[in-house]
Simulated scan of single mutants.
Amino acid sequence: MSDPREAGMVGRRTDGKVVRRPLSPHLQVYDMMQMTSFVSIMHRITGTAWAGGTLLLAWWLMAAATGEVAFARVQWFMSSWLGLLMLFGLTLAAWYHTLAGLRHLVWDAGFGFDIPTVYKTGRAVLIGTGVLTVLTWLLAIVFWG
């Protein structure tokens, strides 16, 4: 008896020859201490966090449109330790996702695929994220604090 999943693993090349497609790897095969895996997976996670952060923005904008009482509640939450932690994490996610996205744009242009460059740009994304996040918060504290 044939496994019904076999149908999804068999394909044909343009010349008609039958080929077996590989199974997609799962997270267990990735070494999270390897720069390439870590940067790639974190890019996906920060993209999700950044998308989720738009809910905070929507809440803030709806409260601003609703009135002073609703806006004061949002402002209170955003200035609480949990709100500030969420905003800091959102800032971190935004910078990381932006820098990793720029790295992907360079790759899309056909540059930076050799292993030494991949590791250099991965480290640049990590260091740049830390520096830009701290700089963003320092500027926020100085100008709006």
Rank of each mutant, 00 (worst) to 15 (best):
E6Q: 13
A7T: 05
V10T: 13
G11W: 13
G11I: 04
R13V: 08
D15M: 13
G16K: 09
K17E: 15
K17F: 14
V18S: 03
V19L: 12
L23H: 13
H26G: 15
L27A: 14
Q28T: 11
Y30P: 07
Y30L: 13
D31R: 14
D31H: 11
D31L: 04
M32T: 09
S37D: 09
V39S: 01
S40F: 03
I41G: 10
I45R: 03
T48K: 07
W50C: 12
A51M: 08
G52I: 14
T54E: 03
L55V: 06
L56P: 00
W59Q: 13
A63L: 01
A63S: 08
A64L: 10
G67T: 06
G67P: 02
G67E: 10
V69S: 14
A70Q: 07
F71G: 12
F71A: 15
A72N: 03
R73W: 10
R73T: 11
W76P: 08
M78C: 08
M78T: 10
M78K: 09
S80P: 02
S80M: 00
L84S: 01
L87H: 04
G89Q: 01
G89N: 06
T91N: 01
L92F: 15
A93D: 08
L99S: 01
L102C: 08
L105I: 11
L105V: 14
V106R: 13
V106E: 12
V106P: 10
W107N: 09
G110I: 02
G110H: 05
G110Y: 01
G110R: 05
F113D: 11
F113N: 09
F113G: 15
D114G: 11
I115P: 12
P116N: 00
T117A: 14
G122I: 02
G122T: 05
A124I: 07
A124Q: 00
A124M: 00
I127Y: 04
G130N: 00
V131Y: 04
V131G: 04
V134R: 00
L135F: 06
L138T: 14
L139H: 10
